[in-house]
Simulated scan of single mutants.
Amino acid sequence: MWRGCALAKQRSVKMVWRLLIILLCSDTLLAQSQCTRVQTLEYGDTLEISLPPDSSAVQLHFSPAIPAQRRPRSQLLMNCSQVTDPKYQPRLSALETGLELLRLTTDDQGAYTVWDEEKGKLLEKICLTVKGHQSFLDLAHGDTLHIPLFANESTIRLLFGSRHEVASRVLVDRGEVTDEAYRGRLSLLPRLCTLQSVTSADTGVYKVVDSNRNIIVTVTLYVQEYRTSGYFPVATVSILGVLFILALLLYCKKRIQRVPQKAVAMVSFAKQSVKEMENDRYSTLEDDDSVSLIEERQDVGKSRQKTGEDRLERPTVSDESCGHAIHSQTDAQPAAEASPQERS
Rank of each mutant, 00 (worst) to 15 (best):
R3F: 04
C5R: 10
K9I: 09
V13Q: 11
V13R: 13
K14I: 00
R18L: 09
L19S: 12
L20I: 03
S26Y: 11
S26P: 00
T28R: 10
Q34S: 12
C35H: 02
Q39V: 13
L41P: 05
E42R: 13
E42T: 13
G44F: 08
D45L: 06
T46F: 01
L47E: 10
S50K: 10
S50Q: 08
P53S: 06
P53K: 07
S56E: 10
S56K: 13
A57P: 01
V58G: 00
Q59R: 11
H61P: 02
N79W: 08
N79G: 01
C80M: 08
Q82C: 04
D85E: 07
Q89H: 12
P90T: 00
R91C: 04
R91S: 07
E96V: 06
G98E: 02
L99I: 08
R103I: 02
T106F: 01
V114H: 10
W115I: 11
D116K: 06
L123V: 15
E124I: 05
L128Q: 11
L128D: 10
T129V: 05
S135W: 02
D138I: 00
L139G: 09
L139W: 09
I156W: 07
R157W: 02
L159F: 10
H164V: 09
H164W: 01
H164M: 00
S168A: 11
R169K: 15
R169V: 12
V170G: 02
D173K: 15
G175I: 04
G184I: 09
R185L: 15
R185Y: 15
S187V: 04
L189N: 11
C193E: 04
L195M: 07
L195G: 08
Q196R: 11
S197R: 13
D202P: 05
Y206S: 07
V208M: 08
D210I: 08
I215N: 08
I216Y: 03
I216H: 03
Y222K: 15
V223M: 08
Q224S: 14
E225F: 11
Y226T: 05
F232E: 12
F232C: 04
P233W: 15
G241W: 14
G241H: 09
L250Q: 06
Y251D: 00
K253F: 12
K254E: 02
R255S: 14
I256R: 02
Q257V: 02
P260G: 10
V264L: 07
V267Q: 12
V267T: 13
S268I: 13
A270D: 07
K271C: 13
K275T: 15
E276I: 11
M277H: 12
D280W: 09
D280T: 15
S283L: 14
E286V: 02
D287T: 05
D288L: 09
S290W: 12
V291K: 12
V291A: 12
V291C: 03
L293S: 05
E295S: 14
E296T: 04
R297F: 00
D299S: 07
K302N: 10
R304D: 00
K306F: 03
E309H: 14
E313I: 06
P315N: 05
V317S: 03
V317P: 03
V317T: 05
H324E: 04
H324L: 07
H324A: 03
I326S: 01
H327P: 01
S328I: 02
A336V: 09
Q341F: 13
E342Y: 13
E342V: 14
R343I: 11
S344H: 14
